[in-house]
Nucleic acid binder design. Structure first.
Lengths: 124, 124
DNA sequence: GTCGTTGCAAAGCCTTTGCAGGGAA
DNA sequence: TTCCCTGCAAAGGCTTTGCAACGAC
């Protein structure tokens, strides 16, 4: 994949660099549109797919089976979802190592994902 | 909601009683169809929505933002997703209490969901 | 000039909804 | 008889794809 430096791709990347909370695709689209007004949604769909494939961003499972995206390479962390305002927050320094979990024999653990639900500081 | 005892609803419930792993809606539909051949997908969509609302089943976030469903009232447990065969397993007795997690002040924890990724016994 | 990239619109999925007939109570 | 439930098909909503024009290199 030879990436060409287009304003559209630059805008999409910038959105991920500027925003640390995981975002829905529509949020990425809107934020990127404010940088490149004519940006089409198909372009965002295509680049998110590509950026996922090359590992520049990662997908996070959000509530209601939504998919959220965030920039990769931020180290292991978990996510907190506020049930009142619907916001998603990164929770740093709360790593639960897989070794702390007693898995039945036979299962090979590679990775894990933890989502905490509750109220964020603004809503509690 | 006054539930009438129809063969369709009985079949859908039976599928959840017989299968302990979380299932995609399509799986529920197919299994229920083997009990009630003419079963329409709209009926399954409608009953899954209702059973969720009354808390008879619960939704689980699956990989790729898929939604999985399982019978409620099985106690707190986590899920293991096999990356090779795509199967989802219940992991009992591995409860990570929210109190074990150091959450920044201001956040009110109500619940959590843990998904472990790796290889199941059949695939490892 | 080449060919990756883009925006638009059409096409594809999956899920929900409208509706008339059927059947549980 | 009442009216909840069902299956079918149409409608919605979100994502992907086809295509011709554009533009990075």
């Amino acid at each position: 994949m030879m990436e060409r430096k287009t304003p559209q791709l630059a805008a999409i990347k910038q959105v991920f660099i500027d925003n640390h909370s995981p975002m829905r695709l529509e949020e990425v689209l809107n934020k990127a549109k404010s940088i490149v007004p004519g940006l089409g949604q198909a372009t965002v769909y295509r680049w998110i797919k590509n950026l996922l494939k090359i590992g520049w961003i990662v997908a996070v499972n959000g509530p209601n089976s939504s998919i959220l995206y965030e920039k990769a390479g931020k180290g292991h962390h978990h996510h907190f979802f506020c049930r009142r305002c619907g916001s998603m927050h990164e929770i740093q320094g709360t790593c639960i190592e897989a070794s702390n979990v007693s898995i039945p024999s036979g299962f090979v653990v590679e990775d894990h994902e933890l989502t905490i639900y509750g109220l964020c500081p603004s809503c509690s």
